[in-house]
């Protein structure tokens, strides 16, 4: 019962913040001002000679993000291997 009360309080807080944000956000599908994305769409083919603009952002314009992402994946794999390593069932 205590958890349900906690959930109702959390719902009220989240719904207040969310509806307040919804009143000020741009309408759905009306993203007119996006200069950075327009730059990518116009220049990705000329600068990087790639057809897929999303791939050019993932691996080139923002490759540093992808480096962190690969590091996160590597760390997760190492963690799972460490959790299920050989001989861990004897403890």
């Amino acid at each position: 019962m205590k958890r349900q009360v906690l959930f109702v309080v959390a719902v009220l807080v989240v719904a207040g913040v969310f509806l307040g944000a919804l009143a000020r956000i741009h309408p759905f599908g009306d993203t007119t001002r996006a200069p950075m994305d327009d730059y990518y769409l116009e220049n990705a083919q000329r600068e990087r000679s790639v057809n897929n603009v999303v791939t050019s952002i993932v691996f080139d314009y923002r490759g540093f993000d992808t480096l962190g992402e690969a590091a996160v994946l590597f760390t997760a794999v190492c963690s799972v291997l460490a959790l299920f390593r050989e001989g861990s069932e004897k403890r």
Binding site: R48, S49, T66, A70
Partner: peptide, 17 residues
């Protein structure tokens, strides 16, 4: 045969994943 290092990184990341 285009896109420079993007192709290379695609294959490397594919191998890793």
């Amino acid at each position: 045969n285009s896109a420079g290092t993007i192709s290379l990184m695609n294959m490397a990341v594919g191998l890793e994943v």
